[in-house]
Design a protein around this nucleic acid. Sequence first.
RNA 1: GGAGGCGUCGCCUAGUCCGGUCUAUGGCGCCCGCCUGCUAAGCGGGUUUGGGGCUACAACCCCAUCGAGGGUUCAAAUCCCUCCGCCUCCGCCA
Length: 423
Amino acid sequence: MIDPRILRDEPDRVRAAQAKRGLSADVVDRALAADTARRTAILAFEAKRGEQKSLGALIPKASPEEKQDLLARTKTLAAEVKEAEAARGAAEDEWTEILKSIPNLADEATPPGGEDDFVVLEHVGTPRDFAAEGFEPRDHIELGQILGAIDLERGAKVSGSRFYFLTGVGAQLELALVNMAMDQARGAGFTQVIAPSLVRPRAMEGTGFLGQAADDVYRIEGEDLYLVGTSEVPMAAYHSDEILDEATLPKRYAAFSPCFRKEAGSHGKDTKGIIRVHWFDKVEMFVYTTLEESYAEHERLLAWEKEFLDKLELAYRVIDVAAGDLGLSAIRKFDCEAWIPTQGKYRELTSTSNCTEFQARRLDIRSRAEGGTRPAATLNGTLTAITRTIVAILETHQLPDGSVRVPEALRPYLGGLDVLEPV
RNA sequence: GGAGGCGUCGCCUAGUCCGGUCUAUGGCGCCCGCCUGCUAAGCGGGUUUGGGGCUACAACCCCAUCGAGGGUUCAAAUCCCUCCGCCUCCGCCA
C-alpha cells in the first residue's frame, strides 16, 4: 500500500508512476474520490456517535419521565448510528481496496517500460569459451544424469512435470550451497531462520502475492493456507502487527524454505530440466529497516548476492529491472543473471527488491523513534535458489569427460571434494 | 481428534458472575519537573495504538481501540455467537 498522503497531496506523482509501469492512471481519480467519500462518511458517523454517547450518559441519572423520553430518542438514534457506521465501513473498505491495487511508486532510477526494457548495470566474469577449449558443453540435464545428481524421470513419475529428485552429489550439492549461504549470511550479521512454507491469507496478501500474481500460488484445499513461492512471505509477516524500536534496526534474516510455484502461463517455457520447477529450496535474505536506510541496504543486498556468485566462480550480469516488471511491492529490483552455456544466454539466479513501506503498511509493521511511529521498510534478496544455482555450476564448471570441477569456496562444504565424478 | 482453562493500553494486574461517571484500577519500567555535593530515595506530573477535524503534518477537540469479527441493548471490557492464539489433560504421531 502506498502512502495515502502522497496520493492526496501529490496525485500527479502517482499518475506519473502508473505511466512508468505502463498502467492506467484512472485509479488515481477513483482513489481520490473514495478518500473524500470515506472522510465524509467518517464525519457523519462520528457526529451521530457523539450524540448517542452524550445522550446515553444522561439515562442512568434521569428521572423516570425524562428517562422515557430519552429512551425514545436514543432508540431512533441507535438505528441512525448503525446505519452511519455501516456506511463508514463500506466507504473505508472501498478506499482500502482501491489503494491496495496501486503498485508501489517506482524509484526515479528505475528504467521505465516492460520486461524487455531492463538496463544492464554490469558484467562480472567472462562466459567460458567451450569452442576454444575444443568441446561441446553438455546441458545440466545430461550432466545431472551422468553424475547421478538429478533424477527427472522419477520426479515426473512421482510428482509430475517440473519435479525432480536430487540424488547423490546432487543432494550433497544442495546441502553444501545452503550451508555456504547460511555461513556467509551469519558472517554478515544475519539471523538464520528456517521458515514455514505454509501461510495464512494475510501473509500472502500482505506481501502482494494475491493480486495479479494469485494464479501462480498453490492453495491448500479446504484449509485457508497457501504454499509460499518464497520465504519473503513468511519473513515479511514475521513482524506483522509489531512496533519495532528503530534502535534495533536493521533486522537482517537469512531464511531457508522450500518454494512452490504453479508456473501458470509458462507452458512451453523451460520445459526440460530444473530451470523452472514447481518446487525448489531457497535461502533468502530479508531485511527490516527505515525508509532512509533502505536505498543503501538494497545496494548491500546486491553486494552480498554478488559475493555469493563470485565464490561460485560464475559469469553473470546485473540488470536494473524496468518498472513494468517490478511486481506490486518493489520500487526497484536488481536481478543477477548467470551465463548458462548451453542456452547461450543469461538467466536469473538471484533477485533483490526494495519494497520500502509498501508491505509494512499492509502487514502493519511499524518502527518507533523519537517523533513517534511510522511504517518500516522491507527488502528482500536471494542468496541462493538451489535449482538454478546447480544448473549454473554444473554447466559452467563441466569438464570434457562429464565430470564437474567444484569451485574452491564450495569444497569445504563438500568434504573437500574438488571434482564431481560420473557414476 | 476429544475435554477444560485463559487472552485488559511496554510488563504484571483490578474490573467480567450482578451491563451505565470504566472518561479502564494499582504496581513495575520509562519520560519530564522539584528536591539534592553526586547518585539513590522522596514528592508532583506524564506514559496504548489508529483514524478524523482544525492546523505549522504543533497544541487542542472528537471517534474508535480491553485477542479479532458479528449479535443483543438506549448503553458492552462485562451478556450471546463465530474465529484466532496460548496453556493443561487425554488420544494419536515424526
